[in-house]
Design a binder for these strands. Sequence first.
DNA 1: ACCTGAACACCGTTCAAGT
DNA 2: ACCTGAACACCGTTCAAGT
Lengths: 219, 219
Amino acid sequence: MLSREQIIDTAVELLDAGGEGALTVRAMTERLATGSGAIYYHVGTRDELLDTATETVVTAALATKPGGASVTPEEEIRAVALALFDAIAEHQWLATRLTLQIIRNPIGPVTVGIFERIGRQVGALGVPQAAWFDATATLVHYILGAVSQNARVDGDTSDVEAGVDREEFLGAASRAWQELDPDDYPFMHAIVDQMREHDDREQFLTGIALVLDGITNLR
Amino acid sequence: MLSREQIIDTAVELLDAGGEGALTVRAMTERLATGSGAIYYHVGTRDELLDTATETVVTAALATKPGGASVTPEEEIRAVALALFDAIAEHQWLATRLTLQIIRNPIGPVTVGIFERIGRQVGALGVPQAAWFDATATLVHYILGAVSQNARVDGDTSDVEAGVDREEFLGAASRAWQELDPDDYPFMHAIVDQMREHDDREQFLTGIALVLDGITNLR
DNA sequence: ACCTGAACACCGTTCAAGT
DNA sequence: ACCTGAACACCGTTCAAGT
């Protein structure tokens, strides 16, 4: 018998392999050797399936160990942030789907789960309660913004090739920046070297440290 | 004769009125009283039209006055951030399309335009040059993350009704949060009142101030 | 309760043909 | 150069019918 879980797993596979465009009802029925009605019976609309897949993947990412007793709030926040960073690296379709879910269903399990997880640590950081909501919202907005914008479309290359792709990409980008009119784009010219040598993950951690610095100043 | 500009304007109208799903080639040909080939001739694919529309709207938003001579870097950054905030409030489809464009074309005019505009002010803030790229990336990630996640889907109501909608929405959200298990979601329960009374725009400015605080600490 | 699959209305895109 | 619009392959969704 066809199960809801099977359908969701298959959907994630199709999404990972070919992006949102690859998730068609017909592709699903072929892989699952079933009729289209069966899918609607178990998970509803294509759009609902997309939401469910998002929920499943994000929940799994957040389920990483709650951290030992001796973990600082900063470390815990970094762990959650990196879990989301890695989830989007693995499932690039999440970048837009996560945003869509937060906009359309801000009281759903995805939004609430992330907020609760980050918010507790903001409290543990010693931020006065009156600032909890603002501080947590800022952190969550930053984390989700950064991970979404860092999702790279690089096809299904091996790990070794991915390194090459990355260098090629950075080279192309820095060349494009070099070609900009220096009078119109002085800043881009000034940072072209930093851009070529930067690491997304490191920059993400630097950004978190920076926001955390602003947050702890609220004490 | 049909012009590229006409096509883009019509596309933005359809997108504003009904979201991404409302932008169909057939709806375009009806409004413009033309054949489908004409659209492909002028702007290419539907996807390319979507990118062009995004570019047009973002460029217009960034074109707000460059600021007088006596404007501080902080004020300038706030002005750019609020311009993007308002652009997404007016064109909600931007939330996902902007992310998509940044991912797929990080060297395009949209990404470069935002980066240059914000980056200059980061320099003017006195941040050491070695930290320019990291600081600017953090700020841009935060701004785009926050504005995207604040895009509300509220249909085509008048300004007065929008206020009612907002209260209804906040009420529904706070009620949903109240119903969460307090043992599993202590943080959500603690901030439910702040959430009901907060203002998105104010919270956004608070977030920017917080990130700016972290950035100026780099001096 | 669970599943099939034909049928339907609607897509984006192409391209020979016209002016 | 600019535009038409029929034709094509492909969508998501429904629903009577089966087990």
